[in-house]
Structure formats: C-alpha cells, structure tokens
Design a binder for these strands. Sequence first.
DNA 1: AATGAATGAGATTTCATTCAT
DNA 2: TATGAATGAAATCTCATTCAT
Lengths: 194, 194, 194, 194
Amino acid sequence: MCIEEDTTKGERTRRRLLDVAASEVARRGLAGASLSAIAREVGIKPGSIYFHFGSKEALIEAMLEDGIRASLHRLAAALDDTPAPGGAEGRLRAAVRAHLGALADLRDYAVVVLAPQFAEDREALPTFRALRHDYLEHWRRIVADAQRAQVLPDGLDPREIRDLLLGALNAAGLSGRSPDRTAMVLAALLGFRS
Amino acid sequence: MCIEEDTTKGERTRRRLLDVAASEVARRGLAGASLSAIAREVGIKPGSIYFHFGSKEALIEAMLEDGIRASLHRLAAALDDTPAPGGAEGRLRAAVRAHLGALADLRDYAVVVLAPQFAEDREALPTFRALRHDYLEHWRRIVADAQRAQVLPDGLDPREIRDLLLGALNAAGLSGRSPDRTAMVLAALLGFRS
Amino acid sequence: MCIEEDTTKGERTRRRLLDVAASEVARRGLAGASLSAIAREVGIKPGSIYFHFGSKEALIEAMLEDGIRASLHRLAAALDDTPAPGGAEGRLRAAVRAHLGALADLRDYAVVVLAPQFAEDREALPTFRALRHDYLEHWRRIVADAQRAQVLPDGLDPREIRDLLLGALNAAGLSGRSPDRTAMVLAALLGFRS
Amino acid sequence: MCIEEDTTKGERTRRRLLDVAASEVARRGLAGASLSAIAREVGIKPGSIYFHFGSKEALIEAMLEDGIRASLHRLAAALDDTPAPGGAEGRLRAAVRAHLGALADLRDYAVVVLAPQFAEDREALPTFRALRHDYLEHWRRIVADAQRAQVLPDGLDPREIRDLLLGALNAAGLSGRSPDRTAMVLAALLGFRS
DNA sequence: AATGAATGAGATTTCATTCAT
DNA sequence: TATGAATGAAATCTCATTCAT
C-alpha cells in the first residue's frame, strides 16, 4: 500500500507482506521481526508466507531492496528536475527535499536508508548493499559539487560532510517533524536559503 | 572493562556481562542479543547469568542505564570545566566534544544514546528513559543558550536544532572517524571555530 | 519411461510421477520422499499431483505395485522359458538372472523388492504385500526344487536359503556390478555352473 | 541400554537418546525418525535433546558411529581370538559369527552396518563413512585370505565375494533367525564346516 | 558463584493437502 | 489437465528461564 499498486491476489498479498515486514523491522529490529507476527497482521498463516518468499531472509531482503530502490528513484527524479548547470546549491536543496520526502512518504521502508543495524554482516544482502552504496555515492557527488560552488565548506572530504548531513536528516526525519520545516531549519543552520 | 574497574570475582563477571551485552545489542539489536551468546562470550553458562541479573530485561536495563549515566557524567563534567558566563559557544563546543568522546570511548554502550530502536515501548525502561530525557534536556539548554548568544540561528525551536546536531554527531561518531576531525568538520559547516 | 510406454499427456505425467517417486524413495526413503520434490522434478506443481493420485500414499503404493508386478512378470517369463522338467538347476539359474536383471533394468523400482524399510507396518499396503509374498513364494519353490535335485543342500528350510540368496543378490545388484558378473561369482560360490 | 553402561543422569539420558534414535531410524528411516517421537519415548521434551546433541544430524551421527564402532570392535575381538596362522577358514567362520552376533545383539544399531540409505550423500557423515570403510576392508582381507587358502573360490575380486556374503548375512540376520542357525545354513551353502 | 539438566513457549520451515479458477 | 494461493499440522531448533546440586 506504500510503494505501488498491484493487481492479482498474490501480488496484493506479496505487497502487504513487504509493507508489514517493513513496519515490523522498523519497530522491533531485524531479529525482533517475527514471521508469525507479520503473517498475523497480513491475515494469513505463517506457513503461507513461504508461497511468496523462500525464507525470512528473502522477505527482508526484498523489502530492503524495494525501500532503497524507491529512495534512489526519488533522489534521481529530484535531480533530473533540477538543471545541473543551474547551480550546485539548487541540487543540494533538491536532494535534501528528496531525502526528507522519502523518509516521510516511505515511512517504515526508510529504516533502510539509515539502519546502522545492517552494517554488520559483511557478506549478507549484497544487492541491497550495492544499491545503498549507489545512494551514498549520489550524495557524495552532490556534496562535492556544492563544495566546488562554495555552497559548502571546501577542503574537506565530501563523505564526511555527507555523513553529517544524512545523519541530521535521518534523525530529524524519523522524529516525525515535517520535511519542509526540517529543510528550513537545516538551511538556517548551514547558512543558505532553503 | 569499559566503564569502570571492579574488584571481587562476582563484580568482574557482572561487569563483563554488561560489556558483552552492550556489544551484542549494538551488533544484533535488542531482540537479536541472546543470553546464550552473551554467556558463551563471557565464558559462563546461560543459567549463571541469573545469579547476577534477574532477567534478560534487567541485564539490558542495567547496561542501558550504565551507558546513559556515563554519557551524562561526561557531558556534565565537560560543562563544569567550561565557565557558564564565559560563553555559550564554548559550552556548545564542549558539549560536542563530550558527545563525540562518549561515542568514541564508550563504543557499544553508546548505542544507548542514539538507538531509535528503543523509542517505541512507551512503558518499558522508565529509569533509562528519564536519564535519556535528562541528557536531551541538557542539550536543549545548551542549544538555547547558543541561540541567545547568536551562535546558532535564533527563532527556531532549540529541540529541532538539537536533534539535527545529535543526529549528525551520532552518524559521524558511529562511522568510526576521529572525534576531533568530526568536531572540526561540524564547526566548519556551522560557521564557528571548533 | 522405465517400465512401459504410454500415450496421452495425462498418462505420460502419471508415468513420470511414478518414475520420479521411485527415484526419490530409493534415494531418501519413504518418509524422506516429498511430493514437492517429486513435483518439481516432474515439472508440475505439488497440487497437480492430486489430479493423478489421491494422496502421497496412493502414489507410493502404485509405484510399489508397479515395481513388484514388473519383477514378478520378469521372473515368471524367465521360468516360462525354462522347461520345468529340464532341470531345477536351470530354473534356479534363470531365477537368479531374472532377479539381477530386474535390479539392473528397473533400477529405482527395485528398491521395492528388497527394501527392509517396508517390513514394519503390518496393515499398510496390502496389495503390495501380497504381491511380494507371491514373489517370495515363487523363489521358495524354486529353491525347494533345487534342493530336491541336490543342486542346493537338502535338509534345510528353503526359506532360509532363499533369504540368504536374495540378500546376496540384492546387495550385489545394488552395488552396481553387472548382472552377468554377479551371477558368475554366485555360481562359483555355490559350486554350480552359472 | 544396548551398548554400554553409564553413570550420571546426563550420560544416562544421552545413552537412551542414542538407543531410541537407533530404534526409530531402524523402523522409519533417516527422514522418518522424528525428534519429537524420540523425545517422547525417552521421556523428555524435544527441545531438551539439544542439551545433549547440537542437532538431529549430530544425534544420528553419534548413533551411527557408536553402532559401527561396536561392530568393528566385535569383529576385531573375534579375529584376535582366532590365531591367524591357524587357518583362514577359522577366521572366516569367526567373522561370520561376529557379524551375525552384532546383528543379533546390537539390533537397531545394526541398521548401520548395512543401511543402503546412507549410501547417497557423498559428503555427509565422514567419520562414519571412514569407519564403515574400515569394517569392509577387514572383511575384504578375510575373504582374500580364505581365497588364498582355497576356502573360497580363487580368481575373483574378494570385494565381490564379500558383498555377496555380507548381503546374505544381513538379510538373514535382519529376518530374525538365530545367528547359529544362519551360520550353519551359510556354511552348508558354501560347502565348509560351520 | 556457577553448573547441569531440563522446560515451555515460540521461532522458522516443510509438507501433505484443498479448492477455486 | 493443471495452477495459484492458501491451510494446518508437524518438524527442527532457539531461547529465556528454573532449580537442584
């Protein structure tokens, strides 16, 4: 119900499973999210999940990938709408709005974008990891451009700045405040127009 | 071994249990941290934990309280060393350094200070919740003072600014970069001397 | 594809189900053979099996009966080709060749003929049980005739001799050695021409 | 109850688990033996098995190894009692008696020695596989010696003869007939004194 | 101060089976 | 002639917990 609409019954169940999985993982963490609870919420029996996903891990993985894909899509779309030559500052502002918008709209799926919980297992979730790397790389480039345009302080590793920015956005985004307001406060802090 | 020193064997075991619990919770989340794994790491049998703590929840709670108490202690000590009249900016810088220092020194215990995972259960962990509230209130006051002194933009809810700042610090602190460097980058971003 | 040829699509599927069931039971045992695995191998969905057989037990039963029927048929045919008066030794040799031939040709179905796994359930599989009894009775008569003709030692319960012989044949047959070679070795051991 | 005596409560439970596991595997096959059934028979709860064995596979493995070890021990003891120079025929007879004795005394554990069900998984159960190989090698040497002494037909691969002999012994042994009687019948068939 | 041996509840997973389409 | 989507029961396994020793 949160990312896109489907048609057949099976696809509807699958989508609900992903949504509820996102909500459970957001609320109770990876290990705390139980298939029994997810099934109960969706209105099916635990065993029936296995018609749609091969394992708990597969369900979580699909959910994470959906989440990061949707976030990437929003970020790319926001940048496409902002002419590159037009100005690094505009692109930075667009990225901030896209990130906060994703946190607000994708809600539970957005645990995906920050989630220090997934940092551990070096091997697991390679696709998700790769997509998240993409997302961070996008941001690094945006920050580097902003530095070159003197919108952000020069002479610093753009990744350090990016991490601080995303940390701030995530914390604020998750605290439930409106994206617009958060964008405004951040702009005031950093000294540029929101 | 991470927060303070003990003497008797029982106290040593208790301390190791807290340390390992912090590490397990940091790595696997609240639900994912299992008493068997903790006991194994400490070198005792799962049942023996109950000599030291009444339940899993009691162990986690003690660990969380230790962590937030140590953080509070560091913050208070840093502010005590900085004369209040001397300047709101100095106090803000001291708080930043204290927070980053706690993240660096307390390592796993520091999951406590950010940990959006504990935000949910309205009832549980009242003491921990109260202490964390204290910590955030300290920060709110520091930010409000800084706003009054024109070190941070005025006219905004200090809690919004505080959340952005702590979010940024937490993200950077957990990413493993040195506290000094992070403090410097943050100061550059906000436009004041680190 | 292993016992006889069919025509319609449904009959072809039925036959493949039996073949794959034989293979799975041979490899993993009665309880270890799963309908999902059988369906996957045949290229249909588990539920579709129920168009062909009323239950797992019915499928297994049909497979077992096919196997023991084919074995009986081969044994009878071999004896028919060997004139009864001609000599008990010839009939014994023909039976040995028939049994080894069945093991070689029917492969997985031949688990049926030995399979000490089915010895237990007193009630189940009555038809199969009856047919296997037939098979053993045929052999008992062949052995008794051979004893009377001094080809096998007299004064012993023919069933004891039969069980030893079939045990030997089954072990050798399943070990993958050629029927001809095994027949030759057995003949050498027993002191008659193969 | 079947292989040796123990002392502590834990060791007694462990032994009963092995005994009951042997009985269940003998009766229902590897896949058909359920931990719930085993636990029920032993008088504990399924989860308690995991105090003694790390997994179902570990329990089965321990049981198989116990079985093949006991068989090997009996075979070695029987051969030790029979002077090597004294005669290959005596050693062959001793081996036959040892094998039949193991089948009779170890009962369910003896499924281990034949069990064509374990032939499948090339990787699994390496220790058990190695011990079973030892057992078969012992027999190969006994048979080869008997061939050299003209007790068994010369000019044939001793492994072929060994497999026929063991197949016969296993079939007879499992059919419940007395070891003495079976040994006698076999000797009559092979033309030497039992 | 800790272990040994268990329990009961719940987790993930598999499986035979059903039935509308 | 089959599939899609589910079910309910059982299986293996984990975990927090208990308690006698």
